[in-house]
Nucleic acid binder design. Structure first.
Lengths: 237, 237
DNA sequence: CCCACTTTATTTGTATTACTATTAATTCAA
DNA sequence: TTGAATTAATAGTAATACAAATAAAGTGGG
């Protein structure tokens, strides 16, 4: 396993991101195995035709996402899958680019199932005045769009709605999901998975419950929404 | 706001991690405000007495955690709190070092509340043979320890038990929580928050349900455990 | 023969300097 | 007033040298 690291994508972005992307692709796709030691810095510099500075920045980026681990004398090793940060937006982008997205979408829906009802409940209790205003404006947009449906603008409003709920929980640990959610929604758009109806009534139920400060009703309304959309998405029963 | 960036902790770790830690502390504590532009690279190099290489590695690390954002000509700016990745173990360590941990523990418990019941249900359905063996061994240890209670070893086994559940879900998005959970448990130990009893029976119920492949029973058992431990932790009703 | 200690070689970590690319702000001309 | 060209400031890339860490090989004493 020597020449698994070659080529370079002729995109725009900064060099070390290109390199990181290439290496990440090979790791995520399984082309290089977990716990495998990748070639030394010098070797990789030659293969990617970049300076050691750039290569090291690339490796640092991947290390910070839990994909790699470096030790002097021993080298840089691919970590166990357990340590990969699947909630990182960039990593998700790379993962989606690779292929079998059905599994990714299914797993993500499962996570939303666990999180969003609780997030809605928390938002009902903790949303600030400012956040309630934003939520109102966004729901208004959804309501308007639902009457004259247009996929892209509705998806965007839908995304913003659920994003705002995460941000309104008043719980720091829910914040990262706002970004992950956006990444997934954007990938939905570009890969144009069909999403039939708007479920505007189910969304209205969530919205009303949050504005009324009724956490249990918000939780239940979000459960209802998820159980309805589950029936339309690929890979679910 | 110029000399908010000085000193340097005389710890061991690699240089750029020390620097990153210092800057992160100032950001997380609010000493430097969100959206504020921090001093240029050269200035920071002088203040921290490190080379530009190390400083840039530090900044890259913080950028990858969503704390900073760099653009040519404009500089490096502290991002909105919404973008901070609170599920990063290192960031959590820094956050805990700062102070008001009660809020952190409370928020984390709230997240566990949302996630762990679903994780237990998924584990009941998807745990591999290998994972079931590990879970059995770990529960056996918990059972033994509960008879002759010793705080540290029990906390470690408890942590491993819940960690294994996350790893056994068969859902990539649950994996990162395994590490976050460990970080929080370790902080519990060092900051020696009291955790009275072992709840061994509640844990047994989860364990049995997972081994039996009964997802709804596993979910309910995990809910029961959380509602019981909630009554003992600081900051909850 | 075996164990502990020392040396060596390899690999990552840090530092320095120089140059390039990007872009906000300014300037100057239409 | 506008808008295109210039300027200046900052991050990105590169090349090179040296420092630190450590696994592995070598060495001496028991």
């Amino acid at each position: 396993m020597q020449n698994a690291f070659v080529e370079i994508a002729g995109v725009k972005r900064s060099l070390h991101v290109q390199v990181a992307r290439e290496i990440a692709r090979k790791i995520l796709s399984g082309e290089v195995a977990q716990n495998e030691i990748i070639p030394g810095e010098m070797t990789l510099c030659e293969q990617f035709k970049v300076s050691r500075t750039s290569l090291r920045e690339a490796i640092k980026l991947l290390t910070s996402k839990g994909l790699l681990e470096s030790k002097p004398k021993v080298g840089t090793r691919v970590t166990d899958r357990e340590n990969w940060n699947f909630l990182d937006s960039q990593l998700l982008d790379w993962l989606i680019d690779i292929g079998d997205n059905n599994a990714v979408y299914r797993d993500f829906l499962s996570l939303r199932n666990a999180l969003e009802p609780e997030a809605a409940a928390l938002a009902a209790e903790n949303a600030t005045a400012q956040q309630r205003i934003l939520l109102s404006a966004t729901f208004q947009r959804m309501d308007d769009i639902s009457k004259d449906f247009e996929l892209e603008s509705w998806t965007e409003a839908d995304m913003e709605f659920h994003r705002l709920i995460f941000l309104s929980t008043g719980n720091s640990f829910y914040l990262p999901f706002a970004n992950v959610l956006c990444t997934m929604f954007k990938s939905f758009i570009t890969h144009s998975s069909v999403r039939g109806s708007t479920c505007i009534n189910e969304h209205r139920a969530i919205y009303s419950a949050i504005m009324a400060g009724d956490s249990s009703k918000a939780r239940q309304a979000n459960i209802d929404l998820l159980s309805k959309s589950k029936r339309r998405l690929p890979g679910s029963s």
